[in-house]
């Protein structure tokens, strides 16, 4: 329990530090926000003055940071400079697509990556060779390229899936997000499959598996209880790392499929220097990244009795 509290405290520390980092980076950025707001039109100094006052641009840096941080804690992420919308509302509207995309991709990594890895590790022979080759190439396929290829084959060519958009309602969304999720999950699945295979190979020859066989335990049981079960320990960490990594990967895939998720929002905000939006998304993503990593560690501690959560780190 103290372990969880300590990790949570560390996470909060990291969040505050990274908020500061992000905020000061945006503050130090060349080009002033009011120039962005007036979009190159010549305006009178009075109007500029008014804009600066409206956005509190004249307050000292630390005061602005403090105001921003306290507002964020109250759920107020400020307003988008580009279209005056409330950033919190924007995020809330975009979140479901991203969440669903990441969840689907995570499922694919677990089912496809781990599944193929187990198959390769336990079968050997030609199955193993094919999966190994696939994983050696698969990890090298950029998600955006996979996205285009899947789109051109299954959406444009065969017409099985929609080309763009995120869909409405649960079923329709899943249908719209299937191809993006596969594109997003492909490289990770390849890596996970290979690591699972290696892990299975190692456990298969481990002393406790060999001795279980020597004691007359049926091979099927040895596989299930000793080989596969134990090889899942290192695999679960890898899967966790990759699921956390999906957060960043989702920007690219969302953009490729023009999905209305957080990622597309971020890309557009970066292109337009809409700092309020960039800041907010950065903080939310760092938090999500940290929380997933924390959950993975907790999960690992819960399945491996050797990890004592009290003394870990």
């Amino acid at each position: 329990m103290t372990f969880i509290l300590r990790r949570l405290a560390a996470l909060i520390g990291v969040l505050i530090a990274s908020s500061f980092l992000v905020f000061s980076a945006m503050y130090a950025a060349p080009g002033s926000p009011e120039n962005f707001l007036v979009q190159g039109r010549t305006v009178s100094p009075e109007v500029l003055e008014a804009i600066r006052a409206q956005y509190s641009l004249d307050d000292p840096f630390l005061v602005r940071f403090w105001n921003w941080l306290t507002n964020v804690l109250h759920g107020d992420f400020g307003r988008s400079l580009a279209n005056q919308q409330d950033v919190g509302d924007l995020l809330a509207a975009r979140l479901p697509t991203t969440l669903m995309l990441v969840t689907l991709a995570a499922l694919i990594i677990i089912v496809l990556g781990v599944g193929l890895g187990i198959l390769a590790g336990t079968r050997g022979g030609i199955v193993d060779k094919i999966i190994l080759l696939g994983s050696n190439l698969g990890f090298a396929v950029p998600t955006f390229f996979a996205a285009l290829i899947l789109m051109s084959i299954f959406s444009v060519g065969l017409g099985w899936f929609p080309v763009f958009g995120s869909g409405d309602g649960f079923i329709d969304r899943v249908w719209h997000l299937t191809l993006p999720a596969f594109a997003l999950a492909l490289p990770s699945s390849a890596v996970v499959a290979r690591i699972t295979r290696t892990s299975i190979r190692e456990e298969r020859d481990s002393e406790h598996s060999v001795m279980a066989r020597a004691r007359g335990v049926a091979e099927r049981l040895v596989m299930r209880r000793h080989v596969i079960r134990n090889s899942m320990l290192p695999v679960s960490t890898i899967v966790g790392v990759h699921i956390a990594g999906l957060i960043a990967g989702s920007f690219v895939v969302e953009y490729a499929f023009t999905l209305d998720g957080i990622g597309t929002l971020l890309v557009h905000a970066v292109q337009r220097k809409d700092f309020a939006v960039v800041q907010a998304i950065a903080i939310v993503l760092v938090a999500a990244f940290g929380i997933i990593n924390l959950l993975v560690d907790l999960f690992y501690a819960s399945i491996d009795p050797r990890v004592k959560v009290e003394t870990n780190r």
Binding site: V14, A244, I247, A248, F251, V252, V286, G290
Partner: peptide
């Protein structure tokens, strides 16, 4: 730095 995904 580890707290930030690379692309972010």
């Amino acid at each position: 730095l580890f707290a930030f995904p690379n692309l972010l």
